[in-house]
Every structure is written in C-alpha cells, then in structure tokens.
C-alpha cells in the first residue's frame, strides 16, 4: 500500500501552485505587506509603528487575509480533484480515502501557514521593528492555529455545498468577521473571537498603557479570556470539523457521468 497522506500532500502542492488562485493570493499578500511597509515608514515614532502592527493583527487585515486564503486553499483540498475530473484516478487506487483527504488538508494548512507566517513576519518587522521580534514570533502561534482552523472549516464547507467559495465568502464577511467584534455573546459563535483571544494572550503586552490606550474602545471582551481557553476551544473546533470532513470525504462517491 502506498503512503497515502504524503503522496496526496505532494500532489496537492504540485497542482495548487500552478493555479491562478495561488497567484491571486500571492499578489494580495504582497500588497498587504507593501501597504504596511509604507505605513511603517510614514509612522511617527516606535509607538505608532507598534500600533500599526496591532492594527494588522486585531483590526482586520490579518484576519481577513487569513480567512480568504484559507477559503481558497481549504476548498481546493476538498473539492479540486472532483471538480477537475481527476478524482477517478485517485479514488480507484489502493489509497486510503480518509488519508487522501487528510494529506491534502495538511498540505493546504502548510501552504497557508507558510504564507501567513511570512506575511506576519514582514508586517511585524516593517511596523513594530526588530525590537518587538519576540512578539512577532509569538504571534505566529495563533496564526498557525488559525490557518488550521479555517482550512478545516472551508474544506468542510466545500464538501457540504457546491459553491464553496461564495458560501465561504458569506461566512467570512457576514458571520465570522463582523460578529467576532460585537460586544454581545454572538461573538462566542465565531472562530475569529477565540483566535483574537489567543493572539492577545500569547503575543501582546496588555499591561502596556500605550497598548491599552490604542485599544480601549474596541473589542474588549476578547481580553477577558485566558489564552488556554481559546486554544482548547480552537483545537476542539479544528478536531470536530476535521473528523466530520474526513468522514464526509471518505464516503463521497464519484459520479462518473459528471467527470466526462
């Protein structure tokens, strides 16, 4: 029996790199990095520059970019082979169906994790600067966790609905992103909220008065939580979504009439 998961991860990487969507994602990331580089150059002093990094992490850019990239890569992990008509080659082989999916999911997470980590590092250095390198590196932890959670969410979505990209965009724009910022309990039903808690818990110095001043009028209940609570919540969400998606993927038949 072939080693299914590594083979499928490699196939995913080989094919996804050639797609236009990866080029689009890459361009978006470069644009975001450039914007923050320019803003960092124009900022007045180190406090304002650090504020820009906080803005990147909490104000939306990191979350939005992460969600949209996860949407592209997660949906591709679940649905690309079926949509491209090449699933017939894979699913007629002695390859474990659950591991086929998990290998692709891991590869999607890997691509996204690398891209988002590099983006965080660049934006962090352009704004906060090398003096805050420890914060920038600690922020990589929630970013890696977020990559996994959102890839699992959007791959599950791609297995449940036909037009996963549109539905995923709706989930991101109308549910996860806005609701994570409202000061009512609905934010507990989002993934972004515990992620923000995690960023706050591991990477931010919330005793810093400058930081408090910058963010004293925003999303506030985020900071009430322990990072471990957030981490466990995210881990459970990731595990649940991955298990359901793997089961769905393994039991999904290929309709040969649709591949011709």
């Amino acid at each position: 029996m072939p080693a299914t998961a590594p083979l499928m991860a490699r196939l995913y990487l080989d094919t996804v790199v050639r797609t236009k969507r990866t080029l689009i994602v890459g361009l978006v990331l470069v644009l975001v990095a450039l914007l923050f580089a320019v803003a960092g150059i124009l900022a007045q002093g180190p406090k304002e520059r650090l504020g820009l990094y906080y803005l990147f992490l909490f104000g939306g850019p990191a979350g939005i970019v992460l969600q949209f990239c996860a949407l592209f890569f997660g949906a591709a992990a679940a649905a690309d082979e079926v949509e491209n008509g090449t699933a017939v080659y894979l699913l007629s082989r002695p390859l474990s169906r659950p591991l086929t999916f998990l290998g692709r999911l891991a590869a999607a997470w890997g691509v996204l994790a690398v891209l988002m980590s590099v983006l965080n590092l660049l934006v962090g250095l352009f704004t906060g600067g090398p003096t805050h390198l420890h914060r920038i590196l600690l922020a990589e932890i929630p970013i890696l966790v977020g990559c996994g959670v959102y890839v699992a969410l959007f791959s599950l979505l791609a297995l449940l609905v036909r037009n996963a990209l549109a539905v995923g965009a709706v989930v991101s724009l109308l549910w996860d992103f806005p609701l994570s910022s409202v000061p009512i309990d609905l934010h507990l039903l989002t993934l972004r909220y515990p992620l923000l808690c995690l960023v706050r818990g591991v990477a931010m110095d919330y005793e810093d008065p400058d930081y408090q001043a910058l963010w004293s009028s925003g999303m506030y209940r985020v900071f009430e939580q322990s990072p471990w609570t957030s981490f466990v919540v995210l881990l459970l969400a990731f595990a649940a979504m991955t298990v359901v998606a793997t089961r769905l993927s393994a039991r999904r038949p290929v309709n040969l009439r649709q591949t011709q």
Partner: peptide
Amino acid sequence: DTPLRGRIGYCPDSERVWPG
C-alpha cells in the same frame, strides 16, 4: 477494501488530467 483496488487497473473515459 482499499488493498483490493491495487489488484484492479482502471482506464477512465474522462479526458481530464492534471494541468501541465
């Protein structure tokens, strides 16, 4: 039976292959 599929060869009608 996953190993069983290793004893079967399949030539699909589909013209589609991975790009490039």
